[in-house]
Nucleic acid binder design. Structure first.
Lengths: 194, 194
DNA sequence: AAACGATACGGAACGCCGTTCCGTTTAGCA
DNA sequence: TGCTAAACGGAACGGCGTTCCGTATCGTTT
């Protein structure tokens, strides 16, 4: 899962060993910097942490957003895969949805500022936004629709809105001890109930 | 309401006519640019629109945020003043709270990107963030506490969380027709109910 | 009317950002 | 052991908010 940065499947590996090694180094360094300083950390910080030039970063990841995507891709993957599993192991689709949202939220708040990226249109992050949506929205939709079909939640919303809503609630939760994102998401999810 | 930029009351007017005129021009220009391009519009755009140098802006408004505050001050004021009024004219504090939140949301979504500012810690916007909180939080608290006291809403939240939550839900609502912030706020507020 | 501070003005300059460009180095193959 | 395509580092670019300062203007005082 570590190499392709376009769609899953057909990505080509670089021929040269140093390039592959550097990409790996870069991903590690970026992950480290992201947890330390948030997703907004300057590209230069990551380059320094990796002991690498700026050009190197930008050949591997054409855009800051692409780097962020690559770093979090497999974590998003895990979240996506949990969806169907939860649906299968729960009698109530609503409960499954709630638990999936818990997972989603955990993921978001663990990574500094990642949630903020979910609502950003500032060009560069559009890619990341798109990726999150492409991968997670179908999962969320499946859970949400099941809960709607079971008559457990109100039906005047879209799964998309729920996901973005949750993402937005988590935005900027870091470093503000008066604001408990988990609890607010709980309120939102409670409001979903029919 | 047009001149003071510190706290209400004791602000001193500039002695020179051109300064007063420029400040006015600046506020008009900024308002115009903000509706056209959102609160994130570059300072230089505002300077150009006003036909004024950058230095002039920064003497009148030490920070971008101060300018934004000045532009929206009386609208924030109106929102703040509506709180007690709603509380007085409604039998149910919960209904008053809900209506106040409607006002608040209207204000946020009408002005491009203003909501995003509520969740931002990015240094530059801190002033703006602080101002919003200082003025609006007490109002929201009054309404919220009344609703809690009346036993109409759950009590494991703070007014601060509600306000930030609503603000967050509205962030990035522009230009996304699949995302209806109003409706999500509605869900959140419904979830508040006890 | 003239002269003179105090005050306000414009915009060049600074530091930080993401990103691009290109001369230099190096890996892997013949 | 060369040779070349690939990858490298980092200077340079344009855009941002903000600062700084020489210049122009205002309002006053003679």
């Amino acid at each position: 899962m570590s190499d392709n940065q376009a769609d899953a499947g057909g990505a080509v590996q670089s021929k040269r060993a140093d390039a592959r090694r550097n990409k790996e180094t870069l991903l590690d360094a970026a992950a480290k910097v992201f947890v330390a300083s948030g997703v907004d950390a300057p590209v230069r910080d990551i380059a320094r942490e990796a002991g690498v030039g700026l050009g190197t970063i930008y050949r591997h990841f054409p855009t800051r957003a692409d780097l962020v995507i690559a770093v979090y891709r497999h974590q998003v993957e895990a979240c996506a895969e949990a969806g169907p599993a939860l649906l299968a192991s729960n009698a109530s689709p609503y409960v499954a949805l709630r638990e999936w949202i818990d997972l989603f939220v955990d993921f978001l708040v663990t990574k500094h500022g990642l949630a903020a990226v979910l609502r950003s249109d500032s060009a560069g992050f559009e890619t990341l936004h798109t990726y999150f949506l492409d991968r997670l929205l179908p999962v969320c939709t499946e859970l949400f629709d099941a809960a709607v079909a079971a008559g457990e939640v109100r039906s005047d919303l879209s799964a998309y809105e729920v996901m973005r809503g949750v993402g937005n609630l988590c935005a900027g939760a870091e470093g503000d001890d008066r604001y408990d994102a988990l609890r607010l998401v709980d309120v939102l999810v409670a409001g979903l109930r029919r």
